[in-house]
Simulated assay, not measured.
Amino acid sequence: MIDNATPIETLFERAKDYSKSTIELFKLNAIDKSADVVSSLLARLAVIMTVVLSVVIINIGISIWVGKLLGEVFYGFLIIGGFYAFIALLLHIFRHQWIKHPISNSIVKKMMKEKMP
């Protein structure tokens, strides 16, 4: 069999195959990075939800205990509620420094992490 393709046709065919392979590799890398970020965030979310549920139950117990010490149960809930209002104010004031920047940096690090061959 004789190959009748000219060198230019062969070059164009190889360039076409290379560009298809490069695009496919880019898609697969994007999918890998996205899956890594999403799975990491979901794992952290599961841990955070468990901690939040535990903290809520513990705070109900502390509120009842403080209320009994003060003579009325609702006093304990008011004190614990005031404490969390103060924490919420601090989080609002420092939200960029304590929350936004660390989360953004974590996502960027995950996206920029190179896979070992």
Rank of each mutant, 00 (worst) to 15 (best):
Y75E: 06
T22S: 15
L42K: 13
D32G: 06
M111H: 00
Y75G: 01
G76N: 01
F74I: 11
D3G: 10
E13R: 06
V55G: 09
A85Q: 10
P7S: 08
A85P: 02
S39Q: 09
I87M: 13
I2N: 15
V38Y: 05
F26K: 05
K109L: 14
T6R: 03
R95W: 05
D32I: 04
G82E: 08
K113I: 02
M112V: 06
V56P: 09
T22H: 14
G76S: 04
I48Y: 15
S34R: 03
F83M: 10
P7Q: 11
F77H: 02
V66E: 06
F77P: 01
L89M: 09
H92C: 03
M116D: 14
I87V: 15
F77K: 00
L11C: 07
K100R: 05
S54T: 06
R95E: 13
P117L: 12
L41Y: 11
K27Y: 10
K20F: 11
F83G: 13
V37I: 15
I99K: 00
Y75N: 03
V108P: 01
I103F: 00
I103N: 00
M49D: 10
A5H: 07
F12V: 00
L91A: 11
G61K: 00
Y84F: 15
E24F: 07
I58Y: 01
L90S: 02
K113P: 03
K100S: 15
V108R: 01
A30L: 07
V73M: 05
F26E: 15
K27N: 06
F12T: 04
V37W: 08
F74G: 00
P102L: 06
F74P: 08
L90V: 12
P7R: 06
I62A: 09
E13T: 07
F26S: 14
F26M: 15
L89A: 08
L78Y: 00
H101R: 13
I62V: 10
E72H: 06
T22Q: 12
R95C: 10
Y84V: 09
E24G: 08
I87R: 03
W65Y: 12
I31S: 06
E72V: 09
L53M: 14
T10M: 07
L41R: 04
I80C: 05
S54P: 05
S21W: 02
F83E: 14
D17W: 00
I48R: 15
L41M: 12
S39W: 07
Y18I: 14
M111V: 08
M1S: 12
K68H: 11
